[in-house]
Design a protein around this nucleic acid. Sequence first.
DNA 1: AACGACCTCCATCAAATGATTGAATAACAG
DNA 2: CTGTTATTCAATCATTTGATGGAGGTCGTT
Lengths: 210, 210
Amino acid sequence: MSTPLDKARREPESMKARILTVARRLFGEYGFHGTTTRMIAQEVGIDISTLHYHWGGKKDLYESVVLDINKDLRQKLLEVEGMIHDRPLAERLTISIDVMTDYLFLQPCVSNLILFRYFSKNRYEGNLDFSVPEFTADIAFSMGLSTDRKHVSPETKMKVVALMNSIHNFISGEGFFRPMLDLTHERYVKMVKDTLNFIHIPAFTKAGDG
Amino acid sequence: MSTPLDKARREPESMKARILTVARRLFGEYGFHGTTTRMIAQEVGIDISTLHYHWGGKKDLYESVVLDINKDLRQKLLEVEGMIHDRPLAERLTISIDVMTDYLFLQPCVSNLILFRYFSKNRYEGNLDFSVPEFTADIAFSMGLSTDRKHVSPETKMKVVALMNSIHNFISGEGFFRPMLDLTHERYVKMVKDTLNFIHIPAFTKAGDG
DNA sequence: AACGACCTCCATCAAATGATTGAATAACAG
DNA sequence: CTGTTATTCAATCATTTGATGGAGGTCGTT
């Protein structure tokens, strides 16, 4: 069992970055109101005031976490975009699903936080609706489902939303769904990929999509 | 605009039931930690202590809400089960999707709460992990995807989970996805149903499933 | 050593929040 | 009307939680 202090000594990461990392995970697990600044500080192994010194308030930290996550996700999409160049549609989708799923299983808090933002309100809604870029259209383009980065048909957008949500659901819901199916983590991962491929690829290859 | 008091006078519902109804909605919108007993009491138009008088503590109320929701959902499933008797598979699925979607769009807090339970922890986890029946297998049976109510293949369970999650996501995420697609509520509902049918029916009709 | 910039922690505050108490009120049986 | 029970509310408490101030510490530069 390694204490937060041990971890701090081993990793030469800046305190600000360490706080962000822990905050990302806790906000993802417990949501905005479910996470307290003290929980974050304790996990990092510092005092609350150190947290406030680096990040101002809880809302600022949360905002940074969300923007950070979006940055990471966008970068991963660009990576995918580079990998699937010039391949047939079904293959592009399989690769996209494979890469995104692997990435998110390593960073489940990313899926957690995205789902939180989709499905839950917070009490200070007016205050923390900072602008987060929406990139469903970019995903459609990255996966090679649309030739135009800006104009994507509503039908295709719906399918992209459904696919991305399915991925996030299986990642975030592992703790709930895996015991239900009684699988090891490895078998669960494989089954998630197989199911996603099985369900979603025909949706994009069947009919004509913009 | 009708005040909570007006509502109280019009509806001869018991105070305990009124609190449960409001709690259901608020817990669904803001999650467990995001909802305060004062928010619930204020919305009902009563004092906090009245809430505690009827329900004990916040956790008891939350537990009742979750169990209540599960009861409703199970009943709706039985209703579906009765409607699809003796029809071909694709038709059974279309009807199931149609009925469940209509129901959940009227009761979005049901989807909200289910997703919250799947994807988020709460700080008192040890204390409020009361037993909630898991009925993925029942859904599979109700929709006519399995002949055995108890034994359903993992593959089929995964597909059922994917389908149910897709539905819940589109319901709970309306506030997020609809502006993105720039649709009216009616067109959104229709598009959700079409998309669900388009994506998920082939998944169950293509290959052999338990 | 002396200085200063940067960082961390202890002590503390004010507000929010879950919960309780006791008094007031309503409903109702006899 | 009277007594009893059930219900509701105002006032209050204890804890949690976001936030701050100032003392002390570390580190590099001179």
